[in-house]
Computed example of a mutant assay.
Amino acid sequence: MIENEHEETHDNDNEHEQEFSGEESGAASAEMEHVVPVQGMYNDYFLDYASYVILERAVPHQHDGLKPVQRRILHSLDEMHDGRYHKVANVIGNTMKFHPHGDASIGDAMVQIGQKDLLLDCQGNWGNILTGDRAAAARYIEVRLSKFGTEVLFNHKTTNWLASYDGRNKEPETEPVKFPLLLAQGVEGIAVGLACKILPHNFIELIDASIATLLGKRFKLVPDFPTGGMADMEMYNDGLRGGRIRVRARIDKVDNKTLAVREVPFGVTTSSLIESILKANDKGKIKVKKVEDNTAKVVEVLVHLANNVSPDKMLDALYAFTDCEVSLAPNACVILDDRPQFIG
């Protein structure tokens, strides 16, 4: 009797094991049907991400010269426009109806537009492009559209409208800009697999070039920088990839022991310039006693030379070993027909 009971128990255990293993293999095969290879996931997700960054974040559209965040800020200001100044914090909050990437990106983009002194009428401390000083907090500074901005940016009747990211609002696909804003402001952005760098141009020269275009005449247009400086445009190549511009600071000789930097190259601040001078001094490339930054509305960086140093030789050394001379590589990439294209 005992042996039979053991045999029956053993048989039951085997049956349970077989049933369990059968269920387990069935579940495993069912799971395998839903497995997506990692390689496929990577390809799909990365391409989606790359396309999104290129089209929706980093590269401007050819029609209006604006990145999506800039377009949404200007549309938000147009929506709020009543002729009076608005707290930047309020504008940021209103823009978040259209832009899903947070308040910091909106605030930084608005400050960059305001510092170009073209589309926005700003009030308060908006920073300084010469020294690199940051703008005050959004709750302290105010903004409204400039007269130029309201005149050239908007026309609701000729604007194509899209649903915002959550479907609650409408935003412009592009603004019907009546001015070559892309060239006037310049733009810089880094996307996935490509970058965009379009240099700013002179406002009056752009108007003359626009008139020449309408008349069917030829014209020559080269960049112009709000920070001043001297530029060698020989290798500019109309802004196409592979072109290059050398930009130098404007340096005056005050006396035999002092040089004064009056204008800085585009993209260089007085802070970064002084830092590069001190680094070159530490490496023994140049010899200076001290450097003073007296920059306010205009640039003035005084470089006091060490004893027995020729100011003429020091001038050449500053261009050779510091950020008094920089090289800029334009790369005119824009969105056209829903894809990035290089122009020049």
Rank of each mutant, 00 (worst) to 15 (best):
K289E: 07
K283G: 07
V264E: 03
H61T: 07
G127C: 08
V152I: 15
H16W: 02
S327D: 06
K170W: 05
G124F: 03
Y165I: 10
T322H: 14
Y45N: 07
V291G: 01
A138V: 12
H86A: 01
W126L: 02
V268P: 11
H304A: 08
E19Y: 03
F321W: 09
R71V: 00
A104M: 13
D108E: 15
K97Y: 13
M1P: 08
N155D: 15
Q39S: 15
V334C: 05
E292W: 09
A135E: 11
L130K: 12
D166C: 14
L278T: 08
P226M: 13
D44F: 08
Y85T: 06
T174E: 02
D166R: 15
L74Y: 00
H201P: 05
A109T: 01
I274K: 11
R244G: 10
N14H: 05
G149C: 14
G65M: 00
G40N: 11
S29Y: 10
A58M: 00
V309H: 04
K279T: 12
G107P: 06
S210R: 04
R139N: 13
M1Y: 11
H6S: 09
F266L: 14
N256M: 15
L145R: 10
I54E: 03
F203P: 01
R250L: 04
P172D: 12
T158S: 09
T131V: 11
G83W: 03
G83T: 06
Y85C: 01
N90F: 04
S327T: 15
N4M: 04
L259D: 07
V301C: 05
D133V: 04
V288C: 03
V334D: 12
I92Y: 03
A191I: 05
V38A: 12
S105H: 02
Y236M: 06
I277V: 15
D316M: 09
V143T: 11
N308P: 03
T131G: 07
R134S: 12
D337S: 11
A260Y: 01
D282Q: 10
I141C: 07
E205S: 08
L318E: 00
T159F: 06
Y42A: 13
H99V: 03
Y140V: 13
P172L: 14
E171Y: 06
I207T: 05
R144M: 03
S146P: 09
V35K: 11
K287C: 04
A329Y: 14
S310I: 12
S164F: 02
V38K: 08
D252G: 08
Q115S: 02
K170Q: 15
G167Y: 08
N256F: 08
H201D: 03
D338N: 11
K253Y: 12
G229T: 04
D252A: 11
A30I: 10
G132W: 11
L328S: 06
I274D: 05
D64Y: 04
H61W: 02
Y319R: 05
L183I: 01
Q341W: 08
G107E: 02
N308T: 09
V299Q: 04
I343Q: 02
T95R: 05
H86F: 06
D121G: 12
D64V: 07
F179V: 03
N14Y: 08
T322W: 10
K289T: 09
L336V: 13
A136S: 12
N4D: 05
L145D: 10
I335Q: 00
I343A: 08
A317E: 11
L315S: 07
